[in-house]
């Protein structure tokens, strides 16, 4: 396997990590706000804030890691995406900035402030929508390179069914992943009233998720038949994804093994995400960057991979420590510490 494959796999793993942890976080913000306006906040907001307080920064780092890594491994992507994404990218920055800082403001200064919670909830849905645009653009057809540089074709982007189906998929997946996690977490905390509520959310959001996935596939077959064909060749990955979806749904429905249910959700997205990624190759951005044309020089690639492994050796133990202290410490989860 060439180092460009190692590079893209590592980055894709990190993006997958971000997808999971950020979805939990984004969705939780939305549910916290939703619970507040439906006057159910006393039931779940304690639970949500106990999970979010210690880990919110870590979530952001996953994202930064991904975009710094992609520019490092594939410097061409800085050139094309950088020029094309000035406006959507800036909007995403603003949303992320508002979300991150207002979370801290609310948490440390203005508990339960209505405006802050609204911003926190709304950005939770807008950020995935704006970030998912990048994946849409990568399919090709939305960027034009001229002598003056690279421009994004906004008309195409806003009228494409594919682009909207991706946005829709991003939003429902966030709500689905998040409610599945909260179900597990509430169960761990032995918080029965919260469990009943978030379990209902989880069951509710499961069908839109599967519908949105199907719609996206159909839209992809229209927009980029070649990619669609490659995805069909990897049918078993998507098949596994659907199987794990069924398992997760079943477990939550019968109300048992919530931990396994969430692991099934993680596998569901793992296979779908890697199936999508693998069928996307060799392109990083159709038709301008492929992983072999865009990759950095060999020295840098090898150095980055080495550093990445060394970094993981440092980070994984620290992350485990963090999780043992907060996520899996039964006393802490129950709110006794």
């Amino acid at each position: 396997m060439g180092y460009e494959y190692i590079g893209i796999t590592v980055l894709w793993l990190f993006l997958y990590g971000y997808l999971i942890v950020a979805s939990i976080d984004f969705g939780a913000g939305f549910f916290a706000y939703y619970a507040k306006i439906t006057k159910k906040d006393h039931i779940i907001n304690q639970l949500i804030s106990r999970y979010l307080s210690p880990v919110w920064e870590v979530t952001n780092v996953f994202f930064v890691f991904f975009f710094v890594g992609i520019v490092g491994f594939f410097p061409d992507s800085a050139y094309y995406y950088g020029q094309a994404l000035l406006i959507p990218g800036s909007i995403a920055i603003v949303l992320l900035a508002i979300r991150g800082s207002f979370y801290a403001f609310e948490n440390y200064g203005f508990k339960n402030n209505h405006l802050y919670m609204f911003l926190y909830g709304a950005t939770g849905l807008l950020i995935p929508a704006s970030l998912s645009t990048t994946l849409t653009i990568s399919e090709g057809g939305f960027i034009e390179e001229t002598a003056n540089g690279v421009t994004l074709l906004y008309g195409e982007l806003f009228t494409s069914p594919y682009s909207w189906s991706v946005v829709f998929l991003a939003i429902v997946s966030v709500l689905y992943i998040s409610s599945m996690f909260l179900t597990y977490y509430a169960n761990r905390a032995n918080d029965h009233s919260a469990l009943a509520l978030v379990r209902k959310y989880a069951l509710f959001w499961s069908s839109p998720t599967i519908i949105a996935s199907m719609t996206t596939f159909i839209a992809l077959s229209q927009h980029n038949p070649e990619h669609f064909q490659k995805a069909i060749d990897l049918w078993w990955m998507f098949g596994l994804s659907v199987a794990f979806f069924m398992i997760a749904l079943f477990l939550v429905y019968v109300g048992k093994y919530y931990g396994w249910a969430f692991i099934a959700v993680m596998f569901q997205f793992f296979f779908a995400f890697f199936g999508y990624g693998a069928s996307h190759l060799p392109y990083i951005l159709q038709p301008y960057i492929t992983i072999s044309s865009g990759v950095t020089n060999e020295t840098m690639a090898i150095t980055l991979i080495t550093v990445f492994i060394a970094g993981l050796l440092l980070l994984v133990p620290s992350l485990i420590l963090l999780m043992r202290l907060f996520l899996f410490d039964a006393e802490y989860v129950k709110g006794k510490k």
Binding site: F67, V68, P75, D76, L86
Partner: peptide, 28 residues
């Protein structure tokens, strides 16, 4: 971090080949 690519794409394309290492490590 994002603006470096959004505003200086040509610079990052060139410099990314040489100086990506510390940028990457900063995140760690």
């Amino acid at each position: 971090g994002l603006q470096l690519s959004l505003l200086w794409p040509n610079f990052m394309r060139l410099a990314g080949n040489v100086i990506a290492l510390p940028l990457f490590m900063e995140v760690f």
